[in-house]
Amino acid sequence: MKLRKVTAASAVVVALAVTATACGGNNSNSGSGGGSGKIKIGIKFDQPGLGLKQPDGSYAGFDVDVATYVAKQLGYKPSDIQWVETKSADRENALQRGDVKFIAATYSITDKRKAKVDFAGPYLLAHQDLLLKKDSKIAKGTDLNGKNLCSVTGSTSAQNIHDTIAPHSNLKELSSYSECIASLQSGAVDAVTTDDSILAGYAAQDKYKGQFKLAGLKLSNENYGIGVKKGDSATLDKINKALEKMVSDGSWKAAVEKNFGPANYKNEPAPKIGQIVK
């Protein structure tokens, strides 16, 4: 009889211990961001100054800093972030498949893209430009007629020039800007086109210093937004609030100076959330 009482008491103690442990586990998870403790964010891996995977495996650039700040406001530490390479042609698909929570990858907001994904921001206003060899005679967009023009597959930049500015240019689309820059260096193409922020990052690299120049043309307005899955209004609202805070507390300006300062890039002021410059 005594044995039964001891056993029953022991069972109560064990049950209480298990309950306490379970409660403690839930509390420890609650502060790690969304419960899972990890977040997948899409960026570019090959864009100096914006999104670059470095030789040591770390990531650097303006988009990386913006995404890290936003993730922190969502409850995630830098160590909770899993960076996912999202090339231009695959950004919409990556969001639709759920491969990433959001994308900060020089993602220009357009009506066509807005039909497939939702955008927070914009968080940077860039302008389409041309990167040329230092001795190039190309001075304006129409000079590209009969010339070889390079950009990446899925980008709106090259198509914009080919359709509206220099219809007789020879458009060459490659999988990355790194390949385009190498083609420019070798003489296989006469110009590379994309946003001035991206081109400035490449021109400032040590291995390219003194070889290239920006044409200084504002061929379009590129409103960079953070892409989220269509219909995910909760995440969209949180990101917009995070971006507003980043500007107000000075972190946005610091990130601009850190990433674009060495290239002498003349950035536009921080855009207002929801304000798209056409």
Rank of each mutant, 00 (worst) to 15 (best):
T7G: 07
K87R: 15
A89M: 14
V189T: 14
C23P: 00
A204W: 08
R91A: 13
T21I: 12
P55A: 12
G141K: 09
Y202A: 00
K77E: 12
N26L: 09
S58Q: 07
S58E: 08
F119I: 07
V12S: 09
K253F: 03
T142S: 15
E244W: 00
A104N: 09
Q73N: 11
A105E: 02
N26T: 01
L3G: 05
N93A: 15
R113L: 14
K258G: 00
A104K: 05
C180Q: 07
K207S: 14
P78C: 06
D90I: 02
D195V: 06
K230L: 07
S32N: 00
S151L: 02
A215I: 05
F260P: 01
A126F: 10
E173H: 09
G227R: 02
D80V: 01
D206W: 02
A71S: 15
K147E: 03
M246A: 02
L130W: 05
P269F: 01
V152A: 02
G121H: 10
A17I: 12
S197P: 03
I103M: 08
L219M: 15
V100A: 08
A166Q: 08
S36R: 01
Q159R: 14
T68Q: 10
A242F: 06
S79G: 09
P122K: 00
A188V: 15
Q159C: 04
G141P: 04
G227M: 05
